[in-house]
Nucleic acid binder design. Structure first.
Lengths: 188, 188, 188, 188
DNA sequence: CATGAATGAGATTTCATTCAT
DNA sequence: AATGAATGAAATCTCATTCAT
């Protein structure tokens, strides 16, 4: 199982990288094969559902990653505003490290595939719900009122996703910084 | 001259519809031909630069549309918070009217093409800059302090774009409503 | 008639240049329009028979050009071998001047179109017949026996055409020089 | 492996036939698909470099064919003039058998593609060099002086290529016969 | 007599998927 | 379980030609 899982994971990771950089459609399976170093036939073998199935795994993986990092960030924060700030900073740092190319893989999957694949639409929904839920949970843990925490979490996740697109167009991190500052004001 | 302009415009409008619904890559030229009713050859004739050139026109058109509506909304608003609320509501209404399919055409163009077309990246940047600038301008006109207005405008545009993706995944307008409420609190 | 003839001539000359450099198929009408500066509609107006008709005019023009130069060369030559040498040198010089790009326009027209257009096949044949006939005539004028002159002329024209292709592949004029030397030996 | 090689070879052979009959540009990939019976997708699979890559293989194959036949011809010849005569006759016979349609595939490739593809220009050059070299070698083996043999070989190859074009325009073999006679005189 | 916008047929190429081993 | 060769549908783009003025 070890080697098989390796190949499978490499495929998913290469796909995620591609979708973060260029979206779903522009990430061809041959790109994934090249980037992952996996044998061509392995893609269909591990993902008989085709590119949509790969995208679903990408969404799942990204969900897991984000939740893990969120928990770690929360553990190191001592206020709601501090937590929020740290969240945005982490994403801004990751984005800058990638030379302003690695956005969220779920946004293009949702935009490009929701009309045709309900499964991917629902996977995207689950991703956003998990992310918003986690943020709301941690905000509430730091004293923000329940319903309010959910609305702020929605604003935060929305603003981060939108700012990532603006930042991609500008090749800077400025929009995320502006978002961070206003979120801090809103919460503090 | 009349007929020529008609065809060209119909192509741009059909393309914008497609890109709002499915993004850039999933909007094939044949889709545009079908939806616009334009002859196939006319697409290349009017847009010798191919789909990238069409996308550039879509971004330009969307910029114009948004600025016009923003001015109209501002004219009818009597406070910064009221203006902001009306902006979000207008977009939410347009999105709901389209059965939760018509997002922003610029987001997918920026995500899918920025890595390969600097021209489209810059067009996207100009779109966001114009939108943010107009929002900031109207906020300032209603008494919000200059630098603050720019940050709030960035937050607002980011949050609207991000919320539109969340709303697409949910087939509701809930995220936009949450964003509207928090923006109102922040400004009011 | 002046201006019309100008446009028509410019089209033919631009076409000849293109066909000498890239052959028939790779010389697009839009290339001809660009290179000639003629209005697009003028091409069809002056050549309702399309590209084949243009090619026919190119072949005709090239025939005329070659015969004129041949007569001039013959007038300056005082022996059969001298005439032959001067012919090859003139063509080699013209080819080198064009940076080894301007071959014979008739060869590609004959190869690419003979199978489909009998008219172009016959125009090519007439071109070769005229060229060979003129060479034979001048050789005979310098004392070469009639039937022999025709065979030598055929060899010369064949060798020049073939050597031009070799020279194109090498970006030199060496093959034409070798041909010139052997033709001189053969005649002298 | 057997089936793969078959398809690949059939594609090359069908392409060579087309290019000999109509040149490079007029031999469409769809023609090649039809003539070879190969599946459309196999063309791109075996030749990811497109038509240029196919042309390169055609040039290589033609080089090999010609060298093989030349060696066989040389083995059966007992004089330089006899060898030369047999070479021209073999080509004339092949051309007549094809109803005066099957010329040299390299000439159109060189003319149509040299300006844009250095690789094809160099492949053409290699073809001519190999052919001229082999002819020179066999002439030298029959007693012709070294440098002279090379010049005669260049003349012979040039004249054969040129005469093939003339013969195509006339639908006869006359020009090749004239070339053969004069080459015999020159060597004998 | 002349023009340039407009058109659709056809070309190449990309690509996800299928299949035999 | 795993592979890579093979395939054809569909995409974009090129281009000669048509047409209205």
């Amino acid at each position: 199982m070890g080697r098989r899982t390796d190949t499978r994971d490499r495929i998913i990771q290469a796909s995620m990288r591609g979708m973060r950089e260029r979206g779903f459609g522009a990430t061809a399976i041959s790109d994934i094969v090249t980037a992952s170093g996996a044998p061509r036939g392995s893609v269909t073998f591990h993902f008989p559902g085709g590119k949509d199935e790969i995208a679903r795994e990408v969404v799942t993986l990204r969900t897991t990653q984000l939740l893990e990092r969120l928990d770690a960030t929360a553990a190191e924060s001592d206020s709601a505003a501090g937590f929020m700030t740290a969240c945005v900073d982490a994403i801004a740092a990751e984005f800058a490290d990638s030379q302003f190319t690695a956005g969220c893989p779920v946004v293009p999957v949702c935009i490009e595939r929701s009309a045709q694949s309900d499964q991917l639409r629902l996977a995207s929904m689950a991703f956003f719900k998990a992310w918003r839920g986690a943020v709301a949970h941690h905000l509430a843990a730091h004293g923000v009122d329940g319903p309010r925490a959910e609305r702020v979490a929605t604003l935060a996740v929305s603003a981060i996703e939108g700012a990532l697109v603006i930042c991609r167009s500008e090749r800077t991190v400025d929009a995320l910084v502006a978002v961070r500052e206003e979120l801090r004001l809103l919460i503090g």
